[in-house]
Design a protein around this nucleic acid. Structure first.
Length: 491
RNA sequence: CGGGGUGUGGCGCAGUUGGUAGCGCGCUACGUUCGGGACGUAGAGGCCGGAAGUUCGAGUCUUCUCACCCCGACCA
C-alpha cells in the first residue's frame, strides 16, 4: 500500500511534500517560491472560501477589492507596520520593457522609472485605510465591515507548498468602528468565526488565545490567534485577528464626528486566513495511504467504482450506479461514477484513498445479484457490505460520522500531546523527543520568551483565553506567574 | 545570505578507464484481464540545464554560469 508515498513516521516533511504532489494538489512553478495550485487543491480552497464567506456575510460583512499595488509612501506611514514587512516586500520600480541594442533581449526601459515605487501588497491595511479616510466623516458612516479575497506577496527565503510561499491567497477583513469596545468585540467575533470554521468544517480543534508582544502583528495593539497541532507535534497558526487600535486611523488621519459632535480617530481591526489552511488540513488528518479530507471540505464526497468482467455486467452495474448517483446527488452529496476502462478497481481504490475521498462505493456482479453495495470509509479504512436500500441517507449519515470522527481523533491526538509542565528539564525532554503543546508558566517578559526560543526553538504560540488563573513559577526563570501559556515548535 | 545536494525522454533513475545514450513507470495501438495499484505483443518519445575550453572524439574531464531541492538565519 501507498508505495508511492514516503512513510509519514520516517520523514514527516517528505511525506507532506509527496502527498501534496501525488494527490495533485499543487506543484512548484517556474517562479521561485510560487506554487501552482492545481484543480484538486484549488477545489479544496474554494470550499474553504465558500464556508468562510458565508460566515463573514452572516456576521454582517461585505466583500470588496483593493489594489495589488501600494505606493511606498502609504506603506511607510505606520512605523511598526513597515518595520514588520520591509524585509519581504516585492517592489515595482518600472513600467515598461524594450528591446536591447542588439534587438535580441527584452530589457527594462530605464526611461520608464516610476516616480514613486509601488509595493506589491504583503497585506492591505495601508491602501485600505487610505480609502477609508474618504469614506468616513461621521459616526453614521460606521462601522465599515469589509472583507477582501486576494493574493498577497511576501518574499520568503524558504518556501513550502501551501505552508509558506512567496505569493499566497487569503482573505483579509478590515473593519472600522466608532469605539474601542466595538473594535475589540469585532476582533473576538472574527476569531470565533475562524475557530468555528476550523472545528466544524476542517475537523481541526484549535486553541484560541492572545499572541505575546513578540509574535504580534506589525501595527496591532493585540493579536488573537487560533493554534492547531499537527501530527508531527508542531503547531500551526490557523488564523489571526488583530485589534489595531487607532494606529492606522492616526497614520492616515481618519477621524469622525461622534454623536456628541466631538472628533475622534476611528478604531480598527483586521483578520485573515490563507491557503495555509490547506496545508493544515493535510498535516492534521492524513495518513500513509494519502489524504483524509473532512466531508464538508472534500471536493468529491463519494465515488462509485464498478467491478466487472463482462460488458453485460458493466451495463447492469452502470445502470444501478446511475440510480445511486442520482439519489445521492438529490440528497446534496457529491458523487462521481468512475467507469474508466483503462484502470482496474484496485488501482482506483488506491487512487481515491490517495486523494482522500471520504466514501467509496464498490459495485460488482455479486452486489447486483444480492442488491447490496460495498461501502468503504476513508478515515478508518473500514469496509462493509450493506443492502442498497436507503443508501442516500446511509451515506449522509456516514459523511457526518466521518466528519465528527475526524474531529474526535484530532482532539484526542491533541490532548494526548498536550503537556502541563513545571520543570525546565521536562520541557527540554518533551520538546526534543516528542513535540506537542506544552502548557507552562511564563514570567511575561520578552527576554525569557527569547531565551526559550533560542534554546529550544519553541515559541509562545498563544496565551490561551481560557487558561485558568493559577499561581506558579516561570518554567525558565522561576519568577512568579499567574497563568500557563502555550509553547510549541511551529510552522 | 551561509552549508550540502541534484540537473540525462512526461516522471523516477542508470550510464564503467572519454568512443556518439539505456532501464523502470507513464504514454499510443491491439488482445487477454477486472472484488485491493493486471499482463502480453508492437510502437512513439532525449542535440544529456546553459556557455566556453581540453580532445580525433565529451553525458563523462576543466572553468564559468543558471535553475531547483534539502539543512540553517527571517516569517503567516
Amino acid at each position: 500500500m501507498a508505495k508511492f508515498l514516503t512513510n509519514r513516521e520516517e520523514n514527516y516533511a517528505q511525506w507532506y511534500n509527496d502527498l501534496v504532489i501525488k494527490a495533485d494538489l499543487a506543484e512548484n512553478s517556474a517562479v521561485r517560491g510560487c506554487m501552482v495550485i492545481k484543480p484538486y487543491g484549488y477545489a479544496i480552497w474554494e470550499n474553504i472560501q465558500a464556508g468562510l464567506d458565508k460566515m463573514f456575510k452572516a456576521t454582517g460583512h461585505v466583500n470588496a477589492y483593493f489594489p495589488l499595488f501600494i505606493p511606498k509612501s502609504f506603506f511607510s506611514r505606520e512605523a511598526s507596520h513597515v518595520q514588520g514587512f520591509a524585509k519581504e516586500c516585492a517592489v515595482v520600480t518600472h513600467y515598461r520593457l524594450k528591446m536591447d541594442e542588439n534587438g535580441k533581449d527584452i530589457v527594462v526601459d530605464k526611461d520608464a522609472k516610476l516616480e514613486e515605487e509601488l509595493i506589491v501588497r504583503p497585506t492591505s491595511e495601508t491602501i485600505i485605510w487610505n480609502s477609508y479616510k474618504n469614506w468616513i466623516q461621521s459616526y453614521r458612516d460606521l462601522p465599515i465591515l469589509i472583507n477582501q479575497w486576494a493574493n498577497v506577496v511576501r518574499w520568503e527565503m524558504r518556501t513550502r507548498l501551501f505552508l509558506r510561499t512567496a505569493e499566497f491567497l487569503w482573505q483579509e477583513g478590515h473593519t472600522a468602528h466608532a469605539t474601542r469596545e466595538e473594535a475589540v468585540e469585532e476582533t473576538k467575533r472574527m476569531l470565533n468565526v475562524y475557530a468555528d470554521f476550523a472545528e466544524n468544517y476542517m475537523a481541526l480543534p484549535v486553541i484560541k488565545g492572545y499572541k505575546s508582544e513578540n509574535e504580534r502583528f506589525a501595527g496591532a495593539l493585540d493579536t488573537y490567534t487560533i493554534e492547531a497541532l499537527m501530527q508531527d507535534g508542531k503547531a500551526l497558526q490557523g488564523g489571526t485577528s488583530h485589534f489595531l487600535g487607532q494606529n492606522f486611523a492616526k497614520a492616515f488621519d481618519v477621524q469622525f464626528t461622534d454623536k456628541t459632535g466631538k472628533l475622534d480617530y476611528v478604531w480598527a481591526t483586521s483578520w485573515g486566513v490563507s491557503t495555509r489552511m490547506v496545508g493544515a488540513l493535510i498535516m492534521a488528518h492524513s495518513d500513509n495511504n494519502g489524504l483524509i479530507l473532512p466531508p464538508r471540505l472534500a471536493p468529491l464526497q463519494t465515488v462509485i467504482v464498478p467491478i466487472y468482467k463482462t460488458t453485460d455486467q458493466l451495463e447492469k452495474i452502470s445502470e444501478k450506479a446511475g440510480i445511486i448517483k442520482a439519489d445521492l446527488e438529490k440528497a446534496g452529496i457529491s458523487v462521481k461514477y468512475d467507469d474508466r476502462e483503462n484502470y482496474k478497481p484496485g488501482y482506483k481504490f488506491a487512487e481515491y484513498e490517495l486523494k482522500g475521498v471520504p466514501v467509496r462505493i464498490a459495485l460488482g456482479p455479486r452486489d447486483i445479484e444480492n442488491n447490496t453495495v460495498e461501502i468503504a470509509r476513508r478515515d478508518t479504512l473500514q469496509k462493509e457490505t450493506i443492502p442498497d436500500g436507503g443508501l442516500a441517507s446511509h451515506v449522509a449519515g456516514l459523511l457526518e460520522d466521518i466528519q465528527s470522527n475526524m474531529f474526535r481523533k484530532a482532539l484526542k491526538f491533541r490532548s494526548d500531546n498536550t503537556f502541563y509542565l513545571d520543570k525546565w528539564s521536562e520541557f527540554l525532554e518533551i520538546i526534543d523527543n516528542q513535540g506537542g503543546f506544552i502548557m507552562a508558566h511564563w514570567d511575561g517578559t520578552a527576554e525569557t520568551e527569547e531565551k526559550i526560543k533560542e534554546e529550544t526553538k519553541a515559541t509562545i504560540r498563544c496565551i490561551p483565553f481560557d487558561s485558568p488563573e493559577e499561581d506558579g513559577k516561570c518554567i525558565y526563570s522561576g519568577r512568579p506567574s499567574k497563568r500557563r501559556v502555550l509553547f510549541a515548535r511551529s510552522y
